[in-house]
Nucleic acid binder design. Sequence first.
DNA 1: TAAATTATTGAGTGATCATTCAAAATTTGG
DNA 2: CCAAATTTTGAATGATCACTCAATAATTTA
Lengths: 187, 187
Amino acid sequence: MAKKKFDKDQVIDSVIALFWQQGFTATSIQQIVEVTGLKPGSIYHEFGSKEALFQLALTRYTDNSIYEMNEVLNTSLDVCEGIRKILSNLVQLANQPEYCGCFLIKSQLELSASNSQVYQYTLASLQKTENNYRNFLSRKFDNEKANCYARQLMMVIFAIRVYGYQDIQNTSLLQTSLELLPWLQTE
Amino acid sequence: MAKKKFDKDQVIDSVIALFWQQGFTATSIQQIVEVTGLKPGSIYHEFGSKEALFQLALTRYTDNSIYEMNEVLNTSLDVCEGIRKILSNLVQLANQPEYCGCFLIKSQLELSASNSQVYQYTLASLQKTENNYRNFLSRKFDNEKANCYARQLMMVIFAIRVYGYQDIQNTSLLQTSLELLPWLQTE
DNA sequence: TAAATTATTGAGTGATCATTCAAAATTTGG
DNA sequence: CCAAATTTTGAATGATCACTCAATAATTTA
C-alpha cells in the first residue's frame, strides 16, 4: 500500500473557508485546486465528487461548532452564564469585518430547493444543536421549560446569525438578544 | 418606435420564483429562457445582464413584501394585533410544503462574500423594513420602546424565516415567537 | 406605403464547469 | 531490489456557463 502524501484533514480545513464564504454552487473545483495545491484527479480520487467534499467540510464545521459550544457550556459554573457566553461569542463573531455567517444556515438556505442529502443533513444538524441546548438547559430547568427555552434560544441564535450582516453597533445586537431571553438573567 | 411584444413585468414575475428557489448562481440563463419563452438575445437586449434581471426581481419582491406588510398593519385596529397578524402569516408561510424562505435573506447570505451592489441592496432593504416597523410601533409606544421593539421584531422575523425550514408542528413556531415578544399581548 | 426605428431571433462566442483516465510517480511488501 | 499496489498527475472530456451580434421581423413615423 502506497502511503498518502497529502493530509486529508488539512485539505478539508482549507476547503471549509472557500465553501463557507462562497457557497457550494459558487465554489469551483478550480478554486479548490488553487487553494489545496492538489490536481483535479487527486481530489476526485480522494473525495469522489464536489458534493462529497462539501459534505465533509460541512460535517467538520458542524462537529467543531458543537464541540466548542459544549466546551463553553461545560466550563461555565451557571447554566445561564454559559448560554450568555455563547450568545456573546456569536455577537462578537458577527461584528468582525470578515463575518460570513453560519456555514450550516447558509448551506441550508442555498440547498433547500434541491432536497439533497446535504440539505437533509443541515436539518438534522440544527435539530441536534437544539437538542444539545435542551439537554444543557435541563440541568437548571424542568423539562417543559428547558424545551421552551431551547427553542427560544435557537431562534435568537438564528436571528443573530442573520442580523449579523447588518452593521449596527457592537453592543446592540447582544442587548436585544438578552431582552428577548429575560430568563437568562439569574439575579 | 416599435412596440414591445412581451410584458416586461410578466417576465420579472416568472423569474422571481426561479431566483427565489434556486438563488442567483444556481439559476442559469437557459432556465430563464425556458420559463419566459424569450430567447437569450431578447433577455439581454431588455435587461442587460443576469445580475440586472436578478436585481429587478429582488426589488419587485421587496417592494411587494413591504406593500403587503403595510396593508396588514394599516387594516389592523390595534398596533400589536397588526404585528401578531404579520407573524402569524409568516409562520403560516413557513409551514407550507413548498416553503422557500425569504428571497431577501437568501440573497443576502448568498451574495455576502461578493460585496456587490445587490448585496448592498439587501442590507438597505432589511434596514428599511426595520424602519417601517419602528414607525408603525411608534403609534403606540414612545420612541425608545419603538426602537427596541422594532429590533426585537426583526430578529424574531429573521428567526421565523430560518427556523421555517425545520418541520415542526404548525403552532409551535408562532407560540415561541409570541413568547419572545411578550409586549405583543395587549391584555 | 416607404423608410426608419426598434424588437426579436437563435446560432455561435470563448470561458469555465465538474469530471475522467491513462500514464507517471511513489511507496510498500516480499 | 524487484514487483505489486496505490497515489498523483494534468491534459482532455463533453456539458454548460453568461453573453453577443448580424440578420430578420415587427412596428411606427412620415
